[in-house]
Design a protein around this nucleic acid. Structure first.
Lengths: 155, 155
DNA sequence: TGAGTAAATATGGGATACCATGGGAAATCA
DNA sequence: TGATTTCCCATGGTATCCCATATTTACTCA
């Protein structure tokens, strides 16, 4: 099944709302999750967003540790504490929370980046920089220039 | 089963639409993908296009890494963020996005180049140059003049 | 064989539907 | 009650759908 693909930049209005790109809304509708699951990325200035597919990946991560252990508690606090569920209004818009705005450094435009099972929310200029770097690294990785990938690197 | 072969040059109309060559449409119909999956080539001024076969190659590349890791995020941003799914209208035409037009440097004509499991979208003159170079290199490779090509050439 | 006919294809253009965006009014909260 | 949020409607631009036409290719039948 097709996931989140391509990237879009939309404007933030005076009320702090921004349209979620229509193709992404279509994916979310198929996914079935009510609202939009958002979680600050631990390793870049972006917010991960998505539906059940994303939630499943996160839970999968937490399940590496037995419940009630200090490790699990810590990971759970880090993951779920940095998460929130945003409502989507009748016109397909979301209202950005302070957490999202601060973490991504957003001002008046927002870039949505498809990443198959989730998408990311970026400040446009920062995404440009990240993408330039990502493309360089991807080219190197895919050309077999780099050693074996890190299988289970922490989030 | 036969893939995408040969090349065709069609005209871009005032609305930015261009007919996908009928032989390519036949391959896409067999493939079963809904629409046309497009991704900017990382190493030349062309856009890769195709259906499930192409998507499978790309997903395969991303699966080298565990989800939610920095490596996977980076690769996914470079691959899926640079992709889009273009609709094909009832007459077999696609509307070129800005991304495609810019990346390939298109103006008023488009060359479609079959490459078996995918095809490429080129500006005609740039393709001529690329092909001249490609033929020279292919000849050298096939006669064993050059060292083995890089293992995992980017999608 | 060869003119006539039918089918497929590339291309043009009008009408309609969709989407991002702005703003007002009702509802909710502190 | 003032501020914020949620719901609803308006609008301009664009993409999509549908139909028309020219040109080529394939086919038919005398």
């Amino acid at each position: 099944m097709a996931g989140f693909v391509s990237h879009f930049t939309n404007r933030l209005d005076a009320k702090g709302r921004v349209s979620i790109p229509a193709p992404f809304r279509a994916v979310l509708a198929r996914d079935g999750f009510e609202g939009l699951y958002c979680i600050s990325s631990a390793h870049c200035a972006a917010v991960d967003a998505g539906g059940n597919q994303l939630v499943a990946e996160i839970q999968n991560r937490a399940q590496q540790f037995a419940k009630l252990t200090p490790d699990h508690d810590m990971l759970a606090a880090a993951l779920f504490g940095a998460s929130e569920i945003i409502k989507i209004d009748g016109d397909g818009r979301m209202t950005l929370s302070d957490m999202i705005r601060d973490h991504a450094g957003l001002s008046d435009t927002v870039t949505f980046v498809g990443m198959d099972y989730k998408f990311q929310i970026w400040e446009p200029e920062q995404f440009r920089e990240y993408r330039a770097e990502a493309q360089k690294r991807a080219l190197a990785m895919l050309s077999g220039q780099l050693p074996a990938p890190s299988q289970g690197e922490p989030v």
